[in-house]
Amino acid sequence: MKALTTKRTMSEHNFQWFTLLLVGIVLTFVGVWTLASPTESYLNLSVAFGFSILAAGVLEMVFSLMFRKRVLTWKWNLAFGGIDLFVGSYLALYPSVTMLLIPYVIGFWMLVRSFLAIGSAIDMRSQKGLRWRLILYTGIITTLLSLTVLSHPIIGRVGIISYIGLSFVAFGIYHIYLSLIVKNWKRNT
């Protein structure tokens, strides 16, 4: 019976870190795609952003529920995953309205997510042996990028889309790095 329990725990652990890795890959891909094609129509970008944020929200909610016994801030992760689910659904379902609002919606979403990254870094700092500085720097950089998008929404599609693309890449790196930390948790415990 003990071997079955250990196997199930390892399987859940693999799913948990892999979920974070998948979120990171999706966000990084969307960021690179955005940077590579900044002149694409706002309609295509709003739909793509909507579905990627929606997927990230679902995966983050699954992660937070599965990891609730290990992560002190799992309720915050669940709440932010719910926000992602709502924002992503809105962007995907109403792309014509979103074309006008995308700088504000994405800028606010990036700001909220950057606060989560900073909070995660502060939480990780209290645990010995975890490398929290990269996550903190990612959160700070993304905060600055999101404030730039929110304060200058009229500077042009290319500028805003570039900031959004960089923020998605930063969030992707944050999730990939966090997945590697989570992957190593089982080895160290």
Score class of each variant (00 low, 15 high):
V26L: 14
M1Q: 13
E40T: 10
L72Q: 11
L134T: 02
M66V: 07
F51Q: 09
K128E: 10
Y104R: 09
A92Y: 15
S89V: 01
M110A: 13
L45I: 13
M61Q: 15
W132V: 08
G119N: 09
H175E: 01
I173S: 03
L116W: 11
L43N: 10
V58L: 08
I155V: 14
G81Q: 04
V23P: 09
F49H: 03
M99I: 10
T143P: 06
A48D: 04
F80R: 13
W109T: 05
F63D: 03
L101K: 00
L111P: 07
G81A: 08
P38V: 11
T143F: 03
G82S: 10
A56F: 05
T28M: 15
L21F: 15
F168I: 03
V97Q: 06
F115M: 15
I173G: 01
S37C: 05
N77Y: 13
L27M: 14
A117C: 08
S151F: 11
R187Y: 14
L180W: 06
M124E: 07
L147A: 03
L166D: 05
Y163E: 03
M124Q: 07
F63L: 03
L45M: 14
I161F: 15
N77T: 09
L166A: 10
L144E: 09
I102D: 12
S64Y: 01
G165L: 07
F80M: 14
V30A: 11
Y163M: 12
N14Q: 10
S167F: 00
W109M: 10
L72W: 03
Y94T: 01
H13T: 07
G129S: 08
G107P: 15
L22Y: 10
F63W: 08
S114W: 00
A79M: 14
E60Y: 00
V97I: 08
Y90L: 04
E60R: 00
N188P: 01
W17V: 13
I173F: 10
L178N: 04
T138M: 09
I102Q: 14
A117L: 06
F63R: 10
S89L: 08
H152Y: 04
S114M: 05
I161S: 11
T189D: 10
S89H: 01
R125Y: 09
L59N: 05
V158H: 13
G82T: 04
G57K: 06
A36Y: 07
I122V: 15
Y42A: 13
I140K: 00
L145S: 08
V32D: 11
E60V: 01
H13G: 06
L180R: 13
M61Y: 11
R131Y: 06
F115P: 00
R133P: 02
F29G: 08
T73Y: 12
Y90P: 00
T39W: 05
L144H: 04
L78C: 10
Y177T: 06
R133K: 12
V26D: 04
Y137Q: 02
A3P: 06
G57W: 05
A3H: 14
G31A: 03
I173A: 04
S41T: 15
Y174P: 00
S11P: 00
I140A: 08
L147I: 12
I141D: 01
I106F: 12
V62K: 09
A55I: 12
L145Q: 01
D84P: 00
